[in-house]
């Protein structure tokens, strides 16, 4: 479903070149739950941004369903993010002026789904993550764990094949973290591909496969 070929990302810091990724070759199969584990600066987030079409490689390629993402323009990349991907961030990244149901409906708004349809679906998604009684709450009125569940519901709003989590449990306590990982496991059982980046081995243990990264390389 997803594979990378000699994926390399170089950041320029003044005169110095920093290799965030070096010749990464990784294959992720459809329906897989993979955890990428590594310390900070290992390049795991950069890899996730490449796979998630948020960032473009310096060299090498990312293929999604055998399409080389390097050949796509900004709008086509946005469409892939919208239709095939669901993002969950460490900081939850909800739009703070919108309430829970509106946040969940936002990707559908960009996809042009009718208002009634998307609000109905957003409500269902929130019920599914156990927030049926919080749908009109603003992010500031929700706990970290609740916000992350809203974010998961939002990630699912356009029914993506791939769910990407960048340290999704990084800002919540252990119990909540485990609850979130349980939800992700459930999504995996539904047949979605789950890719999670974490530095926490315990969290990574929820995944079917774990890959470790160090200094921009994927270790075997």
């Amino acid at each position: 479903m997803i594979h990378t070929e000699n994926l390399t990302k170089i950041y320029r810091m003044g005169d110095a070149e920093v290799y965030a990724l070096r010749d990464v070759n990784l294959e992720i199969k459809e329906g897989e739950f993979i955890a990428i584990i590594g310390s900070s600066g290992s390049g795991k987030s950069t890899l996730l941004n490449m796979i998630g079409c948020l960032d473009t490689p310096t060299s090498g390629s990312v293929f999604i369903d055998n399409v080389n993402t390097a050949s796509l323009n900004e709008n086509e990349l946005a469409e892939i993010r919208r239709e095939k991907m669901g993002f969950i961030f460490q900081q939850f990244n909800l739009v703070h002026t919108l309430n829970a149901v509106e946040n969940v409906a936002l990707p559908m708004f960009f996809a042009g789904v009718k208002r009634e349809t998307r609000l109905k679906r957003a409500e269902e998604l929130l019920v599914n993550v156990g927030l049926g009684d919080r749908i009109y709450h603003k992010p500031s009125e929700l706990s970290g764990g609740q916000q992350q569940r809203v974010a998961i519901a939002r990630a699912l709003s356009n029914d993506p094949e791939i769910v990407i989590g960048d340290e999704p449990t990084g800002n919540v306590d252990t119990d909540t973290g485990n609850a979130i990982m349980d939800i992700l496991e459930g999504l995996n059982k539904e047949g979605r591909t789950i890719i999670v980046v974490t530095h926490d081995a315990e969290i990574a243990a929820h995944a079917g496969r774990t890959k470790r990264m160090r200094d921009g390389r994927v270790l075997d």
Binding site: G52, L54, E74, N75, A78, E79, R81, R82, E83, M85, G86, F87, F89, N93, V95, L106, P107, F110, A111, R154, A155, N158
Partner: peptide, 16 residues
């Protein structure tokens, strides 16, 4: 800026 980034990440196109 951050919110724009989030919106783009969840699928907003430039024209959105």
């Amino acid at each position: 800026t951050h919110e724009i980034g989030v919106m783009k990440a969840i699928g907003a196109k430039n024209r959105n």
